[in-house]
Amino acid sequence: MPSRISLEDRESPLCAAAQHVCEWWTLLILQDAFDGYSRFDQFQENLGVSSSMLTTRLKALVADGLLERRPYQTNPVRHEYVLTALGRSLWPVIVALTAWGNSRLAPEERSMVLIEAATGEEVDPAVVDAVTGRRLDDSDAYVFTAGPAASDAMRARYRHRKREAAKRLSAGAQ
C-alpha cells in the first residue's frame, strides 16, 4: 500500500498554502483577527474553542509568520496576537471564501456580508486578473500550467493542459 503523502511533500502551491491556513480553527482565528480581536480571551470567548486548541493554533500562526505575539501587559505578562503583513495578505482569501459561502445562501440567510467601509454599501467580491480586470471564476477560460520552478513531474502533469487551452483558444477565435 502506498504511503500517504504529506502536504509539505507536494509541489503544488495550493498544498503549501493549505498547510498554513486550511484548518477550521485557523480560518476562524484569522477572521477574528481581521475583525479586530487580538487577545487570547477574546478569541476563546468568541470562538468557544478550548484553551489547548487555541494555544496550539496561535503558536502555529505565529510560527508561520501570520500573527505576531507581543506583550500588552507586564504584571502578569499577557500577550496579544496581531496580524503581520503576511497575515494581512490573506484578506482577499478570507473575502473570497466568505463570498463563496454566501453565494450558496439566500440574501436573508447571510449572517455576515462585506461592505465598503466609507459608504456602508454591500459589495459583491470577485477574484479578477490584476492586469486585465477580467473575472477568474470561469474555470474553462483559465487553467494552471507549470511554472518556471516546476519539476519534470509537474511539467508532465500540465503539458496536456497547455495544449488543450491552446486548442480552445484557436477554436474560439474561428
Score class of each variant (00 low, 15 high):
P2F: 10
P2Q: 13
P2I: 10
S3P: 13
R4V: 15
I5E: 07
S12G: 09
S12Q: 10
A17C: 11
Q19K: 11
T26E: 00
L27T: 03
L30K: 06
Q31M: 04
Q31H: 08
F34A: 01
Y37P: 11
R39W: 04
F40Y: 15
L47N: 07
S51I: 09
S52P: 12
S52K: 13
R57M: 09
R57N: 08
G65L: 02
L67R: 02
E68V: 03
E68F: 07
P71C: 08
Y72M: 03
Q73D: 13
Q73F: 11
P76N: 14
E80G: 09
V82W: 02
V82Q: 05
L83D: 04
L83A: 02
T84Y: 07
R88C: 00
R88Y: 00
W91V: 00
P92H: 03
V95G: 00
W100F: 05
W100P: 00
W100C: 02
N102R: 02
R104I: 00
L105S: 07
P107Y: 04
I115T: 11
I115K: 14
T119A: 00
E122L: 00
V127P: 14
D129R: 07
V131E: 12
R134K: 15
D138K: 01
Y142H: 13
Y142I: 14
Y142L: 12
T145G: 13
R157S: 11
K162P: 10
L169N: 10
A171K: 13
G172Y: 03
